[in-house]
Structure formats: structure tokens, C-alpha cells
Amino acid sequence: MNIFRLAGDMTHLASVLVLLLKIHTIKSCAGVSLKTQELYAIVFATRYLDIFTSFYSIYNTLMKLVFLGSSFSIVLYMKYHKTVHRSYDREQDTFRHWFLVLPCLLLALLIHEKFTFLEVLWTFSLYLEAVAILPQLVLLQRTRNIDNLTGQYVFLLGGYRGLYILNWIYRYFTEPHFVHWITWISGLVQTLLYADFFFYYSQSWKNNKKLQLPA
């Protein structure tokens, strides 16, 4: 494990904690896209099936359990917790997210490293993760008042992907057989989707103003 990956994982963990803090402590999910959260739950459920088949490290297994548990509990909170559910921006969160699932599945069936059940699902999870943030970005654009926690959540999530790219560059040069085009391209696409958000986030930070995305 290199420093970029550890930093990436920790940033990812921090993003989840920020979101849980908002939902659990403030009992609000205003500005948070349930569609994106549902997609992440599917992403982790399909990617981490290898919990049952292979063991890498205690760290690896623990983190997988944390991401699985947190993504499903966030979805359940938003759907079924009375107070949290009331703060959900249902009218604004209208992205047709299920339309992302089928193309990702088809793409995974066509383009993968190995044609096995677990490998195709794993590839599907990479493609889906790349686009899972879209409903959240659309919702942010429609939300007039983006609160700090929601902004930080998206910023940390984007930061995690950026750090993973550095990790892949590092691994490419230090591990002789580490070449994974599918992972890299979907990771790059995912990071690029944040470019616009990062720009406005840094502007608001620099000018010490509230974050607002142009319509």
C-alpha cells in the first residue's frame, strides 16, 4: 500500500463520515441525492462480493464492510427515517438513475478482463461508480443553498478519486505487471466529472463565499 492509496481511502472514509454526521446528528439529508446513494449501494454490493472468495488483508476486509454498511444505512436512513426523510429534496432529485444501470451492465458484459461472474460484476461496479455521482451533481446545481457538509462530502468524494489516480501512476512504475485499463479509464472519467464542481468549490473557498453552482 502506498501513501496515495491510503490517503485516497481515508478521504473516501472521511466523505462517508461527513455524510453520516449530517444525517445522523443533524437528522437532515437536504441536498443529498438518494439516487446517487442507491447507486453507490449497488456499486459496493457488486464489487465486494469477493469478501466471500478472497482475502487480501484485515484492512481490506474491514474497509469493505465499512463502505457496504455505510452505503446501505445511508439509503435506509433517507428512505425510512421519518425526520431524515422529510428533509429529502424529492422534487429536485429527479435524475433517472436506473437508466445508468443497464448500459453499465451491458458494457461490463462486453468489455472486461475475464469473463467470470465475479469479474463481470466487479467491472460493472467500476463503470457504475464512474457515473454514480451524476444525480448528486445535478441536485447540487438545482439547490440554491448548498450547506457546508454537503459541499465537503462531494469535495472529499472527488478527492478520493483523484488520489486513486496518483496511486495507479505510482503502482504502474513500481509494480511490473500493474496495467489495468478498465479501472484507469473509468476512474479517470469519474474524476473528470468532478472538474466543474472542483472549480466552483475552490472559487467559493478562495473568495470565502457560499458555494453555489451556476444553473
Binding site: 481490506n60 469493505k64 505487471h177
Partner: peptide, 10 residues
């Protein structure tokens, strides 16, 4: 030899 897979990542 086999390519090291990326499954050790999260």
C-alpha cells in the same frame, strides 16, 4: 505469468 489484479484496491 499472470497480471497482478487490482482487486486488492477498494
Amino acid at each position: 505469468e499472470e497480471t497482478e489484479n487490482a482487486h486488492d484496491e477498494l
